[in-house]
């Protein structure tokens, strides 16, 4: 089953089930650069690696601070992060030890949406006063500041 859209693709080749299906699928479609345990159909893999860029799954954001704290960030690059949430941690003994001593990582992430109040009026006033350029420059400065603030969360 593709982990993103949740459709069963295994039924296409009934002789191959589970891991062997996905190994064959990546081989047949000449897909490289996937992480261990990543089960993505062609469409979702293309989205994940759009134009050569890596677009991480939401599970990555749920677990990122835990991995940084435990100094196991290499897991994020090596494995499909949903494996970390699985009950059987046989694939990585060291991880099961960490979970035993520090508890399981959170399965939740946070999504922030924020918007300035009454910005329409402020833009109108800036237009009237001929200060719209200064206003937009100031706003783009805040864009950079906010990006820096969110980047800071990657630090432990």
């Amino acid at each position: 089953m593709c982990v993103i859209i949740g459709l069963y693709w295994e039924h296409l080749k009934k002789s191959l089930q589970g891991k062997s299906f996905w190994d064959e699928h990546y081989k047949d479609n000449k897909i490289s650069g996937k992480k261990e345990g990543e089960k993505l159909c062609g469409f979702c893999f293309a989205k994940r690696k759009y134009h050569g860029k890596q677009f991480d799954s939401v599970a990555y954001f749920a677990i990122a601070d835990y991995c940084a704290k435990m100094e196991i960030e290499s897991l994020l690059e090596e494995y499909d992060i949903q494996l970390v949430f699985r009950e059987d941690m046989e694939y990585k003994e060291s991880l099961s030890e960490i979970i035993k001593s520090h508890g399981k990582p959170s399965k939740y992430y946070g999504l922030i949406m924020a918007d300035g109040d009454g910005m329409g009026e402020k833009v109108d006033t800036a237009f009237k006063n001929g200060k719209i350029e200064d206003f937009t420059t100031e706003l783009s400065g805040y864009s950079k500041k906010f990006t820096k603030i969110t980047e800071k969360t990657k630090e432990v």
Partner: peptide
């Protein structure tokens, strides 16, 4: 950060860092 257009922000973060951010 997913997008930041001045006063307009959309960001995805680990749970523990969301409120603080």
């Amino acid at each position: 950060m997913i997008y930041s257009g001045g006063d307009d922000i959309l960001a995805i973060l680990p749970k523990s860092k969301t409120i603080e951010t």
